[in-house]
C-alpha cells in the first residue's frame, strides 16, 4: 500500500471529482430550464441506471470476448426478484438477497 500522504491525496482527488459530478447539475439547473425533450429522455434514467447496475454484476468481463456469467450473483438474483414481487418491501428484498448468496456460496462454493 502507498504512503499515508499518497492515499490521502487520492481520497481528496477522487472526492473532488465525485462532488463536482454530483453538484454541477444542481448549480446549473437553478438558473436554466431543461427542454421537454431532455425531460422525457431523463424520465428513463431511473429504470435504465438501476437495471444497468444490476446486470453489470451478473457477468465477468473478458475484453474481446463474450462475458462469462457470475453464477453466485446470477442465482441469488432469482429468489431476490421473487422476494421483490411477493413482498414489495425493500428490507425483505435485501435480506432475502444476502441470505440467498450466502447459502449459494456455502452449498456450491461459488
Amino acid at each position: 500500500m502507498p504512503s499515508f500522504n499518497f492515499v490521502l491525496l487520492t481520497i481528496v482527488g477522487t472526492g473532488l471529482v465525485t462532488w463536482i459530478s454530483r453538484i454541477t447539475p444542481f448549480v446549473l439547473l437553478k438558473k436554466f430550464e431543461l427542454s421537454k425533450g431532455v425531460v422525457e429522455f431523463l424520465s428513463f434514467v431511473p429504470i435504465a441506471i438501476m437495471s444497468a447496475l444490476w446486470f453489470e454484476n451478473l457477468f465477468i468481463q473478458h475484453i474481446g470476448q463474450l462475458p462469462s456469467i457470475e453464477w453466485g450473483n446470477f442465482l441469488a438474483s432469482v429468489p431476490t426478484v421473487i422476494a421483490a414481487i411477493i413482498s414489495k418491501n425493500l428490507l425483505v428484498i435485501v435480506i432475502v438477497g444476502v441470505i440467498s448468496l450466502g447459502v449459494i456460496r456455502f452449498v456450491f462454493g461459488l
Binding site: 438501476m50 447496475l53 431476490t80 426478484v81 444476502v98
Partner: peptide, 17 residues
C-alpha cells in the same frame, strides 16, 4: 454474501420503480 446487499438493493429499487 454481504456484497450482494448492493445488488439486491438495485433489484428492489428497480422493481418498486
Amino acid at each position: 454474501g454481504l456484497d450482494f446487499a448492493l445488488v439486491a438493493m438495485f433489484i428492489g429499487l428497480l422493481y418498486l420503480q
